[in-house]
């Protein structure tokens, strides 16, 4: 049964480059399949889609100031090559920019495409093939530390009714990048009550691309997790403050919320109502001729 199983390393490259510079990036392609694969390489531009790290290839146009090629002596970009089962091959991508490349980010994916085989079936069929890609995030800048300009938006705490017992409180926010260069989110989320810190989170270092937003996530054990607080809580007024690293030039954002013992109040009210109902004086109706 023909299959496709490919590993590409690295999964993503991020760098800053001067206009007119040449970048060399090596890729290791490994065929983990049990049969030989005929492959080819390709580079395509993309733009960010949404705020969760998704990419869109349809809306992207290639940058005319960049030229891509392979420096492998025996392989051209787009040319087919064969990898035997278990074989690994290194492809060396060269990215040449001219001196007039605009000072901004460019985003590309280096793809390894499978060339589909020929079908010998006598009945109807579809032939599947695979393609795997590694992203390139390149900032063309005259400085090796391009200026970032972030701001925080849509800061909120849910659910609307916050009880001392349940449910989990979720803090959400969006980091918006107003600069032409990508940067990683760095900062903290601090939840406080009456000025005392209740809980503090580091933010997960997601990339926020040029002029685009990214949903904030918190960091726990080197993993991204939702920014959330677990009950029980003391009732009262709280604040959640998001502060980004000064290098991101973003004002901090604070949201206030109140936690009230809704559930306990309802239960207590119900019990008191029952007590009142069963303990009220009974009316006696006397009939006298």
């Amino acid at each position: 049964m023909a299959s496709f199983n490919l590993t590409l390393k690295p999964a993503q490259t991020e760098l800053v480059a001067l206009p007119g510079s040449t970048i060399i990036q090596t890729y290791d392609v490994t065929n983990n399949s049990s049969e030989s694969l005929t492959l080819s390489s390709q580079v395509l531009p993309w733009v960010p889609r949404g705020n969760d790290g998704s990419v869109d290839y349809l809306q992207a146009l290639p940058n005319p100031h960049l030229a891509f090629s392979l420096t492998n002596t025996d392989l051209l970009l787009g040319q087919t090559f064969t990898l035997a089962p278990g074989q690994k091959r290194q492809l060396v991508l060269k990215i040449k920019s001219d001196s007039t490349v605009p000072l901004t980010d460019v985003y590309y994916t280096f793809f390894i495409n499978q060339t589909p085989g020929f079908s010998t079936s006598s009945t109807s069929q579809s032939a599947a093939s695979g393609r795997i890609g590694s992203h390139l995030l390149i900032s063309y800048s005259s400085s090796d530390t391009p200026h970032s300009q972030f701001f925080l938006s849509h800061v909120s705490v849910s659910p609307r009714f916050k009880d001392i017992l349940f449910p989990q409180l979720n803090i959400s926010a969006t980091a918006e990048n107003d600069s032409p260069y990508f940067a990683k989110i760095q900062g903290k989320l601090v939840v406080a009550k009456n000025g005392l810190v209740i809980q503090q989170f580091d933010l997960f270092p997601d990339n926020v691309l040029a002029n685009s937003p990214r949903q904030i996530r918190c960091l726990s054990d080197n993993q991204p997790v939702p920014c959330s607080l677990n009950p029980p809580f003391w009732p009262g007024a709280y604040t959640a403050t998001l502060t980004l690293d000064p290098s991101l030039n973003a004002p901090s954002a604070t949201v206030s919320f109140f936690i009230f013992p809704y559930t306990l109040t309802l239960i207590l009210g119900f019990v008191l109502t029952l007590i009142w109902y069963f303990s009220r004086p009974q009316k006696h109706i006397s009939s006298t001729p």
Binding site: S3, L6, K9, G130
Partner: peptide
Amino acid sequence: DLFNQFTFSINNLS
């Protein structure tokens, strides 16, 4: 570069 690797497979192409 992020040295981590990325693997994708399809178990049956036909």
